[in-house]
């Protein structure tokens, strides 16, 4: 891969507005004004890399994910896939794009049809990619092996799988489309630490062996620090800071990033800080005096 190959994905000044419904929020904010869930976000994902997105709840991470996989259209801004503006794609190219960008969700359980066995979930994805019946069986076996599932699992329904196994099925389904880019929105948030590692390692392994580019959304800074070559920190629709974890998480420039780091529970170390002022500040919802208030909505 030459270094001047275009990034697999580039976002330029992406903005997504929603109209607030007439609820309490709308009243508090003064009528049905549009509000920007994503407000002018730009970043690039180099081909073959893992890019992390972190930030507080409601900061726009999932909205960005949906924009990237084109589940929703941005209000304004440009998105380039492989250097090509996706807005201008013709039908065939748009279809190729949709197949080439796949998503893995936090709770695969709810994204899997409860009445479909694993075998069918994967068969349908393979068929959608145009894999012939004749090749489907070997391809299925290869996928199952890649995500670390035994073949007997093919006969199971989603509810007969553990959370970690469901997540593997979700990844196998995405891989069945032979994507160039995988968007994983909190893929391990619902799992225990012991399983989190297994799934994160799987994503890393897929990235390394297939060269698959990944956008990884997570609220676990330690996970992002470990596997991403770059990350962006989201706060209230803005990407307040981005760069390699060794810089952003070690010498954060933005106060919000510092708040985020301070909020990571530090186990015994935190307990031994006899000074509990941080906890008190958190209890009061005052996330950091230094930060522009993150809003009392939290």
């Amino acid at each position: 891969m030459s270094t001047d190959a275009p990034p697999i994905l580039e976002l330029r000044q992406i903005r997504k507005e929603y109209m607030l419904r007439q609820g309490m929020l709308a009243r508090l904010r003064g009528g049905g004004k549009p509000f920007a869930a994503v407000d002018g976000v730009s970043f690039a994902v180099p081909r073959g890399s893992i890019f992390g997105l972190v930030g507080e709840s409601g900061s726009g991470k999932s909205t960005l994910a949906q924009i990237i996989v084109r589940l929703i259209e941005p209000t304004s801004g440009t998105m380039l896939f492989n250097g090509q503006d996706v807005a201008g794609l013709d039908r065939a190219a748009a279809q190729r794009f949709r197949r080439g960008v796949q998503m893995v969700f936090q709770d695969t359980g709810s994204s899997l049809n409860p009445r479909k066995r694993v075998r069918r979930v994967i068969a349908e994805a393979l068929a959608a990619r145009g894999v012939t019946r004749a090749n489907a069986a070997t391809e299925t076996a290869r996928l199952m092996d890649r995500v670390g599932l035994d073949t007997p699992m093919l006969a199971r329904f989603p509810h007969e799988l553990s959370g970690g196994q469901r997540q593997r099925v979700g990844i196998a389904r995405a891989l069945a489309m032979a994507p160039d880019l995988l968007v994983a929105d909190e893929p391990v948030s619902a799992l225990d630490v012991s399983l989190q590692g297994q799934i994160i390692n799987l994503l890393q392994e897929i990235n390394a062996s297939l060269g698959l580019s990944i956008v990884l959304i997570s609220h676990d800074l330690a996970v992002v620090a470990r596997v991403c070559s770059a990350l962006g920190v989201m706060s209230k629709g803005h990407m307040v800071e981005s760069g390699p974890p060794s810089r952003v998480l070690v010498a954060p420039e933005h106060p919000y990033t510092r708040t985020l780091l301070a909020a990571v529970p530090s186990g015994l170390k935190g307990r031994r800080q006899t000074d509990r002022t941080l906890m008190d500040a958190f209890a009061a919802g005052d996330m950091a005096a230094a930060t522009a208030p993150v809003g009392s909505e939290a």
Binding site: S57, H219, L260, M279, A281, A283
Partner: peptide, 13 residues
């Protein structure tokens, strides 16, 4: 998420 988690934990404390 972690920031809200920290708030809830602070509150319990």
């Amino acid at each position: 998420d972690v920031t809200v988690q920290a708030q809830v934990i602070g509150m319990l404390d």
